[in-house]
Amino acid sequence: MPSTIEFPFSDYEALPTIPITLSYAGFSVSTNALLDTGSTVNLLPYDIGLQLGATWEEQTVRLPLAGNLARVEARGLFVHVQIGNLEPVRLAFAWAKASQVPLILGQTNFFRELDVCFQRSRHTIEINRF
């Protein structure tokens, strides 16, 4: 199984996003995720958690978010994430009780599990599973 994958990152894309597939409890959801080095946590929108079959009331780890997400309730949820043909990685998400938020891959623990190289000049985002 390869350890590195590249995604296009054109001049016209303001923000770096990649396609991912989330898996939890036998359900899978394919979506785009924002690579956000400035986010302390991974963030999962409420509706995607529900599509994955997660039950809000069963998640007991409560997470206080910050900024304009401070009023949004969030709970910890482990989800398997497939990026291209890399080996799937198990990520801990702050599952927010709001659906208008983006799916964010942040420092804990996406950037703790994978190296990411943003290369505007080469129009690529390189992701390395170490």
Binding site: D36, T40, G67, A92
Partner: peptide, 20 residues
Amino acid sequence: YPVWSPYDATEAENILMQMI
């Protein structure tokens, strides 16, 4: 403009790290 990135959610980060 809304900025959704929880860039300073250190308490949430600590709790997630403990969960891991």
